[in-house]
Each structure stands twice: as C-alpha cells, then as structure tokens.
C-alpha cells in the first residue's frame, strides 16, 4: 500500500501547490482546508506524514497538533512556518512540553517538499552544499 500524506492549510493556492508537487510522486496526497477537517481525515484513515500550516482561522496549527497528539496519533508532523521569532513563539509551549513535531521553512519549493517527504518516508539522505 502506498504511503499517504495529508496537507492541512486554509490557503487554496498552497493546497493546490502541494497537489501539483506530489502528483507524480509515489505518495498519495489528501488535503484539508482546516484543522477540524484535518482531524476528521486523520480519524478516518492512516497517514504517514502531515504538513500543517501554523496560522489558520478558528483552529490554528498549534491547536490542531495538540488535539492530534491528545488523540494518540504519532504521525510525523511538519509545521510549515516562516523562521521568525514572532511565528516560532507560538510553538514554544509545545516544544517545552516535549510534543513531537518538526518545522519546515515557509516559503518552500517543490523540490524541498519532495526531499523532506522522501527523507521522512524512506529514510533517504539529502544534502545541500552551500
């Protein structure tokens, strides 16, 4: 069975960009327009990786991740956000509590998304040389 990725983001353009990026990949991709919808999907099927937007109306990324972990889901979650203190401050409490999550820098390109997914799902090693 193929590995399945879930993207939770209120921005339609972002969800479409993810869909295009993973269209030719070996992975199945579902999208959710809100944290609530994302939690519904996670309750219905297994996901191997979740990309989660930090800033969303009504239920933001922090609330969505907290609820996900409280429900016992251990799926790797990449929170997609800019690397700025203002945004990262929202994640500090989660981090101090030992909640499992990773961070992906925003904006992010298609190649980087594929590399992150392949690394997480296949254990591959990707290098950057600066």
């Amino acid at each position: 069975m193929g590995k399945r990725i879930l993207v939770i983001d209120d921005d339609l353009a972002v969800r479409q960009a993810f869909s295009l990026t993973f269209d030719d990949s070996p992975y199945d991709l579902d999208t959710a327009e809100s944290g609530m919808r994302g939690l519904e999907l996670v309750g219905q099927r297994h996901y191997d990786l979740i990309f989660l937007d930090l800033r969303m109306p009504s239920m933001d990324g922090v609330q969505t991740l907290t609820e996900l972990r409280q429900r016992g889901h251990a799926t790797p979650v990449y929170i997609v956000t800019a690397f700025h203190k203002e945004f990262l401050a929202q994640l500090s409490e989660l981090s101090r509590s030992g909640v499992e999550f990773e961070i992906l820098s925003k904006p992010v390109g298609a190649q980087q998304l594929l590399e992150v997914a392949t690394t997480v799902l296949e254990g591959s090693i990707f290098h950057a040389c600066n």
Binding site: E102, E115, T119, V120, G123, S124, F126, C129
Partner: peptide, 18 residues
C-alpha cells in the same frame, strides 16, 4: 565548504560519513 543533510530517520553513521 559548509554542507548539510536532513537527519530525519536517517542512519546516523551514514549521515556523518556522507
């Protein structure tokens, strides 16, 4: 030159060697 690699679930020894 500075080099970097994603370290999620990778083999640590292979990572260091690379």
């Amino acid at each position: 030159p500075r080099r970097s690699a994603f370290a999620f679930s990778s083999d640590a020894t292979e990572l260091i060697l690379s």
